[in-house]
Each structure stands twice: as C-alpha cells, then as structure tokens.
C-alpha cells in the first residue's frame, strides 16, 4: 500500500520532481542536439521547468510572488527567443545552415 500511495496522491514533491526531470531534458537537449534552433527550444524548456518550480512553491507557500516571477521569466524568454531567432536568421544567411558547426567560424 505504501508504494501505491506515490501514484494515488499528489504532493508538491511530485511537481518539483517533474520540473527537475524537465530541466534535465532541457540540458540534455542543449548538450546533444546540433541544430541551433532546437538548442534554443531546449533552453525554453529549461525556463519552463523553472517556472513550474516557481508556481509550485507559490502554491505551497501560499504567496503570489512566485507567480509574478513567472511573468518576468516569460518576458525574458520571449525576448531571448526574438533575439536568438534574429541571430539564427543572420547565421543562416551567412552559412546556409543553422548548425552549431558555425561556432568554429567565430573569431574573438
């Protein structure tokens, strides 16, 4: 019965664990994928996992501050996506592909 309780009840730990897994998947996406746009999508997934943690703690602590921070994160994420995609478009125009291979052409 003790084992089944994990599936029949919902604690906040469930949400936190889910958000950790989502974050880990996002990190994996950044590390493993070669397409720049998919890498950016993985970053979005990481941000969303963090949002889920924020909302869970907002509910658990019964404070609205967490929800407000989710707003800020969403704004930043939208801004990041816009700039990132603009850069990707520029890269595509230059190299005809949006692969992380382009990094080897960077000089700094």
């Amino acid at each position: 019965m003790k084992g089944l309780e994990l599936f029949t009840t919902v604690t906040y730990a469930h949400f936190l664990f889910l958000s950790f897994v989502l974050f880990a998947l996002g990190v994996l996406g950044v590390l493993l994928r070669r397409n720049l746009i998919v890498v950016m999508m993985s970053v979005e997934l990481m941000l969303n996992a963090v949002n889920l943690t924020f909302i869970t703690f907002a509910k658990a602590l019964n404070q609205l501050d967490g929800q407000i921070f989710v707003f800020f994160v969403m704004t930043i994420a939208a801004a990041e996506a816009a700039v990132g995609l603009a850069i990707v478009v520029a890269i595509f125009k230059r190299f005809r592909e949006v692969n992380i291979r382009f990094f080897q052409f960077l000089k700094g």
Binding site: L18, N48, L52, I55, A58, K59, Q67, F71, M74, A77
Partner: peptide, 19 residues
C-alpha cells in the same frame, strides 16, 4: 495544464498565449 492544476489559472492562460 499543470499551472491551472496548481491554481494559477491566469498564468496558465498566459503560458499558452506567450509560449
């Protein structure tokens, strides 16, 4: 959906609209 489940209805809607 998880946000709405946690009682943050408004954020849930904004999540769909924005993302």
């Amino acid at each position: 959906g998880l946000f709405a489940f946690l009682g943050a209805d408004f954020i849930a809607g904004v999540q769909v609209i924005v993302y």
